[in-house]
Structure formats: structure tokens, C-alpha cells
Design a protein around this nucleic acid. Structure first.
Lengths: 202, 202
DNA sequence: ACGGATCTGTCGGATATGCAACACATTCGA
DNA sequence: TCGAATGTGTTGCATATCCGACAGATCCGT
């Protein structure tokens, strides 16, 4: 829907840059990676880099977003119900993504990464909520999506601090709280028509 | 020497095309590979393909040449003496290259491949001869290089027909004939100053 | 034998990329 | 403290690449 096709050169060049950056990230820390390093490995001109990205931090954000989105396997959730199982799946994808990052060294950029994860989650949750509730109260949906994303990310932080349980068991214990908490406030304040109780859907 | 630098886009695009072609060659026969297949996998426009290559046969030649050159490890021979050991090395590289091709299906293009191999060998032999003899009789050097390349390729054909011996033993039996045959005619006709006998050098 | 489908090779006009140079900031050793 | 060296963003002009369309070739089912 409303897809305006982008120039193939742009797709190709972005991919070259992203791949080069991810490869470099596995070799040295982010703070030691220069734009020249990336463009050399990507076989493009340095000026072209700035045609696509604001700066190297912009690249970091977009690269991480992309990798996370792939990890999140977005098409899978596109039409899934926002139930316990889906949330558990997403939580697993997030923890898996964070573990894949921990090997590379991004010390000092935890906040950026956290924000990216939350933003991505928020977009996904918003789309799912929108599909289930329509847009009669958009700001409420956005609020719910935001809170869910913070909740999931917070859960992943909690889990890393206290990893006695496996991620599966951990999220299964946490998810009822998340779902009913969000569900209650959402239904209570805005009297949404959908029934929050039946199968755990919001 | 006299290197005019080529546009990086050209290098990059050629590499994309070559890599795509080599990848496709491992998946289906040459006759089933279309230009569209290649350009799609290489993420370039079809018109761009024709900017770089005459047609798909031109690509075949250049791709094979490149792969063979890499197999031949050209820098290694750049300054090596044209003695028995070097010739054996080159022979091994050729047989190894042909075996790497046999898995992919290039039926019907044996002649093309054979010609490419001979041409590449001829270039290498010519450079080595030129370095050892100077250019006082250029046409004679070219003749000798050509005969050597035919000889090596012929030896590889013979070896494939009769592979009771390993390639190492096989070429060691054949190389004295090659060396002295070429050496004699070359020295005899043109009275070259270098001594053909001493250590087997031409 | 016929038409549809696919592939080939080519063209002119639009666009992304390359290049060289620039000013500015940061780092680092003398 | 001072340069020298390196990295960052930006700019104008040159060029490789993209697009869409075209005519002809080849293949294939009916």
C-alpha cells in the first residue's frame, strides 16, 4: 500500500553500507569505527555515505533497527493476535537480539540500543492494536503500544539481571501482569468494546 | 606502470556481476543462465550489464579468466624462474581449476574454456620468458610461450584421459620433454644466449 | 503454422555515485 | 604551545547506473 519504489542503487548501496558496518562491528568497537572504514569496505565513496545517512550514529540506529526487525520476523506478527504466545515470541526475539549484540562491543551505547528496541516494539504493537481496535481512539492505542514496549524491554532488563529462569519461563510468568495491566487501564479509561478477559487479548 | 585508475563503480559492479554469475553457475547450467538472472542477483540493471560485457559469453570468458588467474596465483610466478618446479606448479593449478569447473555444468563450452586457459597460460609464460630473455626476439618468445601453453593444456587433457598417476607424478614425467623440446628448438633456431641445459631453464 | 511469452541488445533522458577540494574539529607528539 | 595528521561534513561537476521503451530473436503450446 502506497509503496513508492525506491531506486535500486539506493537499496544496493544501503545494503553494502549496512553489511560493511555489521562486519566491522564484529571486529572492533563502535567508537573505533570511522566512516572511511565503512565506505572502504563497502566499496563506495565517502560522500555517498552522507547521501544516505546523517552520520555514523544515524547508521547505527538504522542498522540496529534493521537487524532487530529481521530478528523480529515482522511478517510473522503482521497478522498475529496480540495474545500471550505472541508476546512471549517477541520477548524471545528481543533477548536473542541482545545476546547477538553482546558479543560485539557497543559499550556506551546501551541507551541508544534500548531506545531503538523500544521504538521498534512500539511500532509493531501499535500496528497490532490498530488492526484489532480500529482508530477510534488513536492516542490511547499509541499510549498502550508505548507502555507495552517499555514493559517488554523492562522485562528483558529484569531477566538479564536475574537469569535463573530460562527466557521462556521468565516471560510466561511476567506476561499475565503485562497483559492484564495494560488491558485493564486501557479498557477502564476508554471503555473499549473488545473484551480483555476471554483469552488474554487486549 | 602506466596504471590509469578505473572508476570504483566499475570495479564494484564487475565484482557484483562476476560473483552473481559464479554463484549461479553452481546452481544451474550455463545454457540456462540468463542475463536477467545475473543482473537480478547482482542487484544491477540489465542495461548496466551490457555496459560492461559484450554478452553473456564475454562474461563467461572474463569470469573464467579471473578465476583461473586467482587459481594460478599470479604474483607467485611473477618473479619465479621458468624451471621444472614452476611448470609443475602451474600444471597443478590448471588441473585443480578444471576439477573445480567439472562440478558446475559447462557442457558444450569445453572449447571456450580450453582457449581461455591457453590464452592465460600464454600470457604468463610470455612474461616469464620476456623477463629472462629480454625482447631482442619478441616473435620467438611469443611462439615459445604459445607452444608451452598448448603443451601444458595438452598434458592436462592427456592426464584426464589417463589418470592412473597423480597429477604430480604425471607432470614430472612430462615436463622434461616439454622443457627440452621447447628449449632446443628455441635455442637452435634463434641462437639465444641463455644456456638451455644447465638446470632445465629455457 | 500461428500467437504469446521470454530473452536479447540498444537507446535517450533522469538520477545516484565518484572525485577533488574545502573548512572545521580532534588528537597527538615535539 | 604549536603544527602535523587524521576524521567529519559539505559542495560542484563528471560519470556510471537506472528506467522505460523499443525491435528483433527464440522458444513453446495449441
Amino acid at each position: 500500500m502506497t509503496e513508492l519504489k525506491t531506486d535500486p542503487r539506493i537499496v544496493r548501496t544501503r545494503k553494502l553500507i549496512m553489511d560493511a558496518f555489521i562486519e566491522l562491528s564484529s571486529q572492533k568497537e563502535f567508537k573505533d569505527i570511522t566512516v572511511k572504514d565503512i565506505t572502504t569496505k563497502a566499496m563506495i565513496n565517502r560522500a555517498t555515505f552522507y547521501y544516505h545517512f546523517q552520520d555514523i550514529y544515524d547508521l547505527l540506529e538504522k542498522a540496529l533497527s534493521e537487524v532487530l526487525l529481521i530478528n523480529l520476523n515482522y511478517e510473522k506478527y503482521e497478522n498475529a493476535a496480540l495474545d500471550e504466545e505472541t508476546i512471549a515470541d517477541i520477548f524471545l526475539a528481543v533477548t536473542k537480539f541482545q545476546q547477538s549484540l553482546s558479543t560485539r562491543c557497543h559499550r556506551g551505547y546501551e541507551d541508544t540500543i534500548a531506545r531503538i528496541i523500544r521504538e521498534q516494539l512500539e511500532v509493531i504493537f501499535y500496528k497490532m492494536l490498530l488492526r484489532e481496535h480500529g482508530l477510534k481512539d488513536d492516542s490511547a492505542l499509541k499510549l498502550a503500544a508505548g507502555m507495552l514496549s517499555w514493559g517488554i524491554y523492562g522485562a528483558s532488563v529484569k531477566w538479564r539481571q536475574n537469569s535463573e529462569l530460562g527466557p521462556e519461563e521468565f516471560i510466561k510468568k511476567a506476561v499475565p501482569y503485562l497483559l492484564h495491566g495494560v488491558s485493564k487501564s486501557f479498557n477502564g479509561v476508554h471503555s473499549c468494546t473488545s473484551v480483555g478477559g476471554k483469552d488474554g487479548r487486549i
